[in-house]
Amino acid sequence: MLLEIEKLSVQFKTESGNLLALRDVSFSLEAGEILGVVGESGSGKSVSNLALMGLLPDIAVINTKKVLFQNHPLDLNSQKQLSQLRGKSIAMIFQDPMTALNPSLTVGYQMLETLQTHLGLSKKAAKMKAISLLERVGILSAEQRLKVYPFELSGGMAQRVMIAMSISCNPKLLIADEPTTALDVTIQKQILDLLIDLQREKKMSMIFVSHDLALVKKYSQRIQVMYAGEIIETGPTDQVIKNPHHPYTFGLLKARPSAHAGKTKEHLYAIPGTVPSLRARPSGCQFHPRCNRSTEVCKKTNPSVSSLQPSPLQTSFSCHHPLESL
């Protein structure tokens, strides 16, 4: 087991009260596994990763029962511990590569700096390493590319550079948070294929966060569906896709049209209502106001705490009235 998180909760302290962004989230990650995390805006899908990277703002209050990384306990409130892992054992790729790169420094400067500080290489060795990394992520004439500034790169190129930098220290865990949302479809496929390739080659584990269930379905082995700061369904990807138990997962699958199947100009299955705001959470099951199966129980008690046990091999879900297996 590479990573084990038990009961992670994150609150944001604001002037208008505390906002619960993540509630009792537990999951684990095997070495070499790809975990897909799906959710809409405000579902908290990025929060656990940011907590793991120590990148949450100061107003965040993190509570955990247990966090193990490579079987060592990890304190998510200790910036010291996290900064030792960050960039080395755990690396992260963000949605917008352009803002993650410093616009006033050349690509080469930024890469060499990372390599020299993290790996302690000499300047010459770092340069060699940078060139080989860029070549590995599919950038042609890598040596010349070191001299360019980020704005001279296309979005896809910039994301490749970010990937090259993130794998430079051979991380054990790569977190890709919406890595292709800002990119075109054709580039998206190239980047994701590259990521999967690297993940196999380096035997990394990967957490792949996306709002697009279709992408996660294609690229992950295990899936985690999040809603309003909770994991509402998790399990092996093909099982969850084929047999969604939670009405929300079912709705997400149905609501998204496909380019490969389905009829045109037909009504889509739409989940009514909107994602609850952190300021006005519903009682009981967080999904009940939008759910067509909800009953009195759903309004009163939240099923998540009782029924959700992290077990990697089978689907678990938090619902009082789950959909039956087909």
Binding site: L213, A255, H267, T274
Partner: peptide, 14 residues
């Protein structure tokens, strides 16, 4: 828009 909202708007447009 989020996926679940996307479907609502597409239905509305139809």
């Amino acid at each position: 828009l989020d996926v679940s909202i996307q479907a609502q708007v597409l239905n509305l447009l139809l």
